[in-house]
Design a protein around this nucleic acid. Sequence first.
DNA 1: ATTGAATATTACAGATATGGCACAACAGCC
DNA 2: GGCTGTTGTGCCATATCTGTAATATTCAAT
Lengths: 220, 220
Amino acid sequence: MKKIMIIEDETTLRDELFLLLQNAGYEPIRVTDYNNVSEQMKAANVDLILLDINLPNINGEILLQDFRKQSDTPVIMLTSRTNEIDEVLSMSYGADDYITKPYNPTILLLRISAVLKRSAKVGATQKYHDVEVSTVKGSLIRNGSEQILTKNEMIILQLMLDRQGEIVTRDELMTALWDNDEFVNDNALSVNISRLRGKLAELGLSEAIETRKKQGYVLK
Amino acid sequence: MKKIMIIEDETTLRDELFLLLQNAGYEPIRVTDYNNVSEQMKAANVDLILLDINLPNINGEILLQDFRKQSDTPVIMLTSRTNEIDEVLSMSYGADDYITKPYNPTILLLRISAVLKRSAKVGATQKYHDVEVSTVKGSLIRNGSEQILTKNEMIILQLMLDRQGEIVTRDELMTALWDNDEFVNDNALSVNISRLRGKLAELGLSEAIETRKKQGYVLK
DNA sequence: ATTGAATATTACAGATATGGCACAACAGCC
DNA sequence: GGCTGTTGTGCCATATCTGTAATATTCAAT
């Protein structure tokens, strides 16, 4: 189920949106504390963010611009009809779409699904909890810090992500990494795992890969 | 002056659009014969097409889908508010944007200019942060200093700009640069990259192209 | 608790992918 | 024809990746 974060200070609207999204089968999350919006955006593990451009004491565009440095999570800006020029500006600050108030519920839902589809198509960057895994960029991002992965590390991570929580055997990893005819020391895998773990640890995910002796590894 | 083709059967609307675009400094072209719309779209040398989704006896989406196989000319779909579901569909058929009737003239113009800007890539000068890239002149400008790029350097830069931050493989670059039958030393690419890097460095962008061994290059 | 196999870790080294330079071929232009 | 600029080649330098080997650590079964 797709999680959508709502950042909107008008309570009536916010609750309206919440219900609308909930009925449409999404999992909406309301933000109520506007003092650390930026932190909440970065920390949240959501699939899409609805961001009001006019928040108390906060400039939505700056917020967005800042956020974009750390995440590719799609953002739809909510703008008031009065200053339509915002729309174009928002787009150049990295918004994926914008919607003017008052919202037409149908349109809103259509756009949300369009943006989600588009960002899924890019598919290259997946989000798992608060970690962004980008195959296209070949990197891992978590609260601002980035780790570049090598080819082997990416292969391992990719396989384990596809089967999150499940046991992946060493054999499976080895066949994913090397052709049958390549003669590789059995320990090579351990080394590669170790290197990946090192980079995960740099992001504060030191316990992410768990080893199950005689069975394989589990990614959490 | 940008040419915009209007494909809309409601005469009132069509003429309204014509005037609006003309006043905004575009060169609008009205299509009046709806029997061979497809041919006209393909034949016309325009910068953008406004395409009504509901034409007599023609399915605008199929039309678009077909057109996309032959051209990258941006298309903005015009949809009637009643069947809004069309909007999402159009996007997946390759539309660059969509606008619901009745149009808000300001919005319409903003979207047109946004789409044109996006597609301006081919031929005009694009801006990326503080760097100006002129495809026509084949040059790069940053705070006053200018670097002339050769054809190959431009091809490389263009491809990498389209996929900023993403890994572009050597293979992709090679196919962009040379025909399959041309036999080029594998090192030729390295040399061209190196030359481009040299010119970027002259503009103070020495670290712009990052190499990811065994994977490709990333432009930052 | 002990033990031994499985896995981790580290430093090292080799492979190899890529970089850079000089030169030559070639094309366009006056 | 000579000049200029572009581009590919060959050769060697270099840096990154990645496997190896030696060593340490873990863990489950005894």
